[in-house]
């Protein structure tokens, strides 16, 4: 049985496009959604865009992702994957508008359809949804596009990105993929449709980089098994630095993220310095780039 997904796309890339395409998770990666408490769950449908809070620094990081690494903005494509129901699309879009973000498309989990089909387990379980959403999106992307997937450490994003990378490279397919999906907890009845969907996506849009932002506070070493593709960033500044290392944003862009963290989120100079020192120590970012970022910070 196919997985019910609502896909909203506002941009069709040229067939020969070979640049990066960001795919950001929404909940807990950009929006600070509280799924754990009853109060948090009750709040979600009641919240207006202005009430929604974000993970510190992610709006600035997303703006820099859009801007790109050069002097002139390149409008790098950004798509969002959300486990929220499509009924929240309006509020999420408006929140992004308020934050100055420019999404090119969304994928929502059609929770109503899941409930109507009696697939209650899948309402909360995300692996099936995330993989299906990514493969559905990839099917629409130019084959040469390079994926930059961004998630968080609350669910199984690290594992999802790892599987996605393997299937896109063609290392995991058919029965092996089916076994991997079952191991990951996918409902047996969903495995075959997912393997078919993966087969259609394989070879298109390779994963260039996967970033997990540790908004739950897990230790970065938790994601070591998924390296070299999956990298852990403790917060948005480290994510921005990681993107700069892969020439997706500029050193000045990382500095702008740091300024926003200081201006809007009360970060101190020391926190910025510690964050940058940590990504160097963990070999996510090379020293020369950190030097450029520090220079940009000093020279405003």
């Amino acid at each position: 049985m196919s997985y019910p997904i609502i896909q909203l796309s506002e941009r069709r890339l040229q067939p020969d496009y070979e640049g990066p395409v960001f795919v950001w998770d929404v909940d807990k990666t950009y929006l600070d959604t509280d799924f754990k408490s009853i109060w948090g769950l009750l709040r979600i449908p009641l919240e207006m865009a202005i009430d929604k809070t974000i993970i510190p620094g992610t709006a600035a990081t997303l703006q820099e992702c859009r801007r790109g690494p050069g002097e002139h903005p390149v409008h790098t494509p950004i798509f969002f994957v959300s486990a929220s129901p499509p009924q929240l699309a309006g509020v999420i879009r408006r929140k992004m508008l308020l934050d100055g973000l420019q999404p090119d498309g969304f994928l929502f989990k059609d929770q109503l359809q899941l409930a109507l089909q009696g697939r209650f387990r899948e309402l909360k379980f995300q692996v099936e949804y995330k993989l299906t959403a990514h493969w559905s999106l990839i099917a629409d992307l130019p084959p040469g596009a390079r994926l930059v997937v961004v998630g968080d450490d609350w669910e199984s994003d690290g594992h999802v990105f790892h599987l996605l990378d393997a299937t896109q490279r063609g290392d995991l397919a058919g029965d092996d993929l089916a076994a991997a999906l079952l191991d990951a907890g996918v409902t047996p009845s969903s495995v075959d449709p997912m393997v078919d969907l993966a087969a259609r996506a394989t070879g298109r849009a390779q994963v260039m980089l996967a970033c997990v932002i540790l908004t739950r506070g897990r230790d970065p070493s938790y994601f070591d098994p998924y390296r070299p593709v999956v990298h852990a960033a403790r917060e948005a500044l480290q994510a921005a630095a990681l993107f700069a290392e892969h020439n997706l944003v500029s050193p000045g862009g990382v500095a702008r993220v740091a300024w926003r963290l200081r201006a809007d989120w009360g970060w101190t100079e020391q926190q910025v310095a510690d964050s940058l020192a940590d990504v160097t120590a963990r070999s996510l970012v090379a020293e020369p780039l950190i030097h450029q970022i520090r220079e940009a910070l000093e020279h405003g």
Binding site: R43, L46, E47, M48, I50, D51
Partner: peptide
């Protein structure tokens, strides 16, 4: 219009 915002 946004009571949540006011309360917070």
């Amino acid at each position: 219009v946004s009571p949540l915002s006011l309360i917070s």
